[in-house]
Design a protein around this nucleic acid. Structure first.
Length: 260
DNA sequence: ATGGTCGCGTAGCGA
């Protein structure tokens, strides 16, 4: 089983890139972020034609997440629980049925939080507290659980080309890292670190300042695994060549391969 | 020191 996450930065502007990659890589489950469209305008047919079931939680202009699965989707939760006054579409969770049993997968688009300090940073931290609360509830099921997405968090200094350039940014501030660690320390494993702990690879290169050409990237797209999922992880691939394609997203897919 | 780039939607915001 291969489970991927990819911030596509508009699924409509990126449709050719997305369908090309789905055909090439053929992952079983894909978590998309920043689809930037309402559900009714999601290019559902083009993706269903490639053999995927599709669940979306869209929004006009900004944000929006989706989950694609070659296996049946049993149940779907739209929106991160505990945010009745939160109108930003940043979370969708599905239970996927597999011969070996169910796996619960969430597609997460964690708030960017810049500029920090400020209301956007407060929103980021509050959202992370809500995610922690919900993640703790899901972990209690003691099932295979994968929280995958654009976390907008640079976990280690080795996950950025130059930490000094990013000092003060909401993606690297100590408070942001601490909030991310609190979630991890509930009992999750960062799939990339388990599979490739000494490595440093990036998942995002800004469109500006020639970041891609200079390899000035950051690692902010993560797969967080429950113990039951981590036990079956075989490898993680960060699909760097995708960033070099025509009309590329600023993020590349991250794919976890599991032994079930 | 400043500006550089995308996408959305058609001005300016978000990243």
């Amino acid at each position: 089983m291969q489970i991927a996450t990819w911030n596509v930065n508009s699924v409509k502007a990126r449709l050719t890139n997305v369908t090309d990659w789905l055909r090439e890589a053929s992952p079983d489950v894909v978590c998309l972020q920043e689809i930037k469209t309402v559900d009714a305008d999601f290019p559902r047919d083009a993706i269903e034609d490639l053999g995927y079931n599709v669940e979306t939680h869209g929004q006009k202009t900004y944000n929006g997440v989706a989950l694609l699965s070659k296996f049946p989707i049993e149940e779907t939760v739209r929106g991160l629980p505990g945010g009745e006054d939160d109108d930003q579409a940043r979370y969708i969770e599905c239970v996927i049925s597999h011969d070996s049993g169910p796996v619960r997968v969430a597609s997460i688009y964690l708030p960017n939080g810049n500029p920090a300090p400020g209301p956007k940073y407060d929103y980021k931290l509050a959202w992370m507290r809500r995610l922690k609360r919900h993640a703790a509830e899901l972990l209690a099921y003691e099932e295979r659980l994968i929280l995958a997405g654009d976390y907008n968090i640079i976990p280690r200094d080795s996950d950025v080309h130059d930490p000094a350039v990013w000092a003060g940014d909401a993606l690297i501030l100590p408070q942001s890292r601490a909030a991310f660690r609190e979630i991890l320390n509930l009992g999750f494993t960062d799939a990339f670190l388990q599979a490739d702990g000494k490595g440093h690879q990036y998942t995002f290169w800004d469109y500006q300042r020639g970041a891609w050409q200079k390899d000035h990237g950051i690692r902010i797209d993560h797969l967080l695994l429950s113990p039951q999922a981590a036990d079956t992880l075989k490898s993680v691939e960060i699909c760097k060549p995708v960033r070099g394609k025509e009309k590329a997203s600023d993020h590349v897919p991250v794919v976890g391969t599991f032994d079930f």
